[in-house]
């Protein structure tokens, strides 16, 4: 099977396109591998460990030196530090929005400024989280806007 690799810009979304005659075991294995390849984090709740897919995560927050993974239904504790998770998620659709939070960009419904001079993000589950001014350039960069 011929393999063609095209490099895309950092701001563009990465995708894989298969041109196949029919779905066979080799291709379905490849798809299965790609779908499950490092796209989840492990969190603990009620002394049980759970896999949380990146796409199900709303945000990750540090509270009292403990790191928590927030999904729509659950809050799971992670054994990793925020900076370690930030490194792990650097190529995924996550961005640091404050000293204590990493946010899934796909979960942002809209961003707005407040009178007190802050930015806030309304998430798809209607929760509101604060975005620190100093991390706004990072968010813009991730979205392909701004210089730095």
């Amino acid at each position: 099977m011929k393999i063609i690799i095209d490099e895309v810009k950092e701001t563009q979304e990465e995708y894989i396109l298969f041109h196949i005659r029919e779905m066979d075991l080799k291709v379905s294995n490849a798809i299965h591998y790609l779908e499950n390849m490092d796209t989840f984090l492990v969190g603990k709740a009620d002394e049980k460990l759970y896999k949380v897919k990146f796409k199900d995560l709303y945000y990750i927050e540090t509270v009292d030196k403990k790191t928590f993974l927030y999904t729509n239904e659950n809050v799971l504790e992670s054994s990793e530090k925020l900076y370690q998770l930030e490194k792990k998620l650097q190529f995924a659709d996550f961005v640091r929005v404050s000293k204590s939070m990493i946010l899934n960009i796909d979960m942002i419904e809209l961003v707005y400024p407040t009178i007190s001079g802050r930015f806030e993000a309304k998430l798809l589950n209607q929760e509101v989280v604060a975005i620190s001014r100093s991390y706004v350039p990072g968010l813009k960069k991730k979205l392909g806007l701004g210089r730095d």
């Binding site: 961003v111 707005y112 930015f119 968010l139 813009k140 979205l143 806007l145």
Partner: peptide, 8 residues
């Protein structure tokens, strides 16, 4: 914020 929302 409008720029960010448009990009989103």
């Amino acid at each position: 914020a409008e720029g960010i929302n448009t990009a989103l």
